[in-house]
Design a protein around this nucleic acid. Structure first.
Lengths: 198, 198
DNA sequence: ACCTGAACACCGTTCAAGT
DNA sequence: ACCTGAACACCGTTCAAGT
């Protein structure tokens, strides 16, 4: 192979990352192997270890990109509605992203064996960005409750929405389909908000 | 090896299953291999394929057993309380089981590639048994709403509780710890019920 | 009929060797 | 310095051969 010096390390890193992403999207994590990535980008297996420490490290960066896209999607939710409707719209957007990007979305929540004790800082920050918009809305929803209560409520509801997505989409408790998931999300969000603000 | 005919097929099946279970509990699914099971029970790898079709099949039965134990745990929740309290107690029991049996609980919800289209009947039934008690309570909670509405509400809330468990326990969004998970579950359940019954 | 264990087609990771 | 590719220590699964 006469690939030597055709690309910078930075370029190779990007090639590896996007090739890996494509495989995950099309075939699922289970289909992702170093050898397949190497074949795809025209380098050999060894070269992948020049730009990523190992497969776990690579996975972490794939997840990071997915979080970025998810954050963007949540930011697209229009401003104009009242607060209740915005929370519901955010939940719908979350479900929509999960459904449309199922193969990359689901790996975000697989327990990470390598970094289980402490996730990298840059990754933690991306996670915060997902929770931020919903927390902000809860603060607006009941300013007199205080930021702590708002944070707790946002967290509880968002975990709940996530649960609906997981169980609706992975088909492990009898497949329900997305339409059904939407109405489940709606019921959870509306009831929770009504009950929370008393 | 002079193991020939020392055990019935049924016995070997049971030996494989419980050896596999022990490995999953102690070391996690990632550590489960045919070779390790074989070593543990004193047979060779080939013999595992006499009693299970493959690893996925074996996994399915490990999951089935976990669902059985979870169902038992939920049945232990005392009767005497009022309905709100019983729903909360069920949610707490669910969280408690998940926390105490994390390694076997988490694999229940991993997408199953082999059976993704249609889960085996015996497995579906076990899943129904998990949802049954909570649905029954929701029917009692608002008999005038009808069985469909109760089913939907039970499903929405239970998915939500599940979401709190997943995100609290797998540490993928900044580890929170179980005490915190308990108060999150409480907030979700109480707010939802209050909001649902108006 | 029951069970073995070598063989097959894979993995992720490393590192001496080539340019 | 960059990159190769063979080697290592693993996988799950199969199946001819032994008892």
């Amino acid at each position: 192979m006469a690939r030597r010096s055709e690309h910078s390390q930075e370029q190779i890193r990007e090639m590896v990352l996007s090739a890996a992403e494509a495989i995950v999207i099309d075939e699922g994590v289970e289909a992702l192997t170093v050898r397949k990535i190497a074949l795809e980008i025209g380098y050999t297996v060894g070269s992948i270890y020049m730009v990523f420490a190992n497969m776990q490290d690579l996975m972490m960066h794939i997840k990071g990109r997915t979080l970025d896209q998810l954050a963007l999607r949540l930011q697209e939710v229009p401003d104009a509605l009242d607060i209740d409707q915005r929370i519901l719209a955010l939940a719908d957007a979350y479900l929509g992203f999960a459904a449309e990007n199922y193969n990359r979305w689901r790996i975000i929540f697989e327990p990470d064996l390598q970094y289980s004790n402490e996730l990298p800082d840059w990754y933690q920050q991306k996670v915060e960005l997902i929770f931020a918009p919903i927390e902000a809305l809860f603060r607006q929803l009941a300013p007199e409750s205080g930021a702590d209560q708002a944070r707790l409520a946002a967290r509880a509801l968002w975990c709940g929405v996530h649960g609906v997505c997981v169980l609706s989409l992975n088909g492990n408790l009898g497949r329900t389909g997305v339409e059904n998931a939407e109405s489940t999300v709606r019921l959870l969000v509306e009831s929770f908000i009504r009950g929370w603000r008393r």
